[in-house]
């Protein structure tokens, strides 16, 4: 296999890496760039734990070849807080106990942030359908949905 040399921007910083042609963006984030916040729950786009923003679109990083990210812009959970200042979603998720084991949490936060940027005032149904691709096995989703609603309200009034 011939390796590729790829240039991207990850969380606003330049990131260069070498990858094999069949490596996914998730593989590279985790194994070559040391960003293990994005999780692999299935590798087939069914669980959403690897959610990242690629060129301003929410995607499963397990379904993107790393080589496809050439010249692209990637935003991950590691870039969500501003220094020591948590994003309102992150803060409310802790306050409202919207996580238990926490392994789906990075993907859900990335996806929820993408939703609120598009729709600052989503209904409960809109949140539930937007997050349908993010599996959580611990919480039954109830506190997650409420936390997204609370964070949205907080962001609207900010």
């Amino acid at each position: 296999m011939k390796n590729f040399h790829i240039n991207t921007t990850v969380n606003g910083d330049e990131a260069e890496f070498i990858c094999e042609p069949d490596e996914t963006l998730l593989d590279v984030l985790r194994n070559r760039l040391g960003m293990t916040g994005s999780k692999e729950g299935c590798g087939t786009g069914d669980c959403g734990a690897c959610s990242v923003i690629l060129n301003d679109r929410l995607v499963c990083s397990c379904l993107v070849l790393a080589a496809e990210a050439e010249g692209g812009k990637v935003d991950t959970i590691e870039g969500m807080a501003d220094g020591d200042k948590l994003h309102p979603l992150q803060k409310v998720f802790i306050e409202k106990a919207a996580l238990q084991c926490g392994v789906c949490t990075p993907g859900i936060l990335v996806a929820a942030k993408a939703l609120l940027e598009k729709n600052p005032d989503p209904s409960e149904t809109e949140i539930r359908y937007w997050l349908a691709g993010n599996l959580c096995r611990c919480t039954g989703y109830d506190k997650i949905i409420k936390a997204v609603q609370d964070a949205a309200a907080e962001m609207r009034s900010a």
Partner: peptide
């Protein structure tokens, strides 16, 4: 087709 994430691709 698929999830919001899949929709993006």
């Amino acid at each position: 087709i698929g999830s919001t994430q899949i929709q993006g691709r």
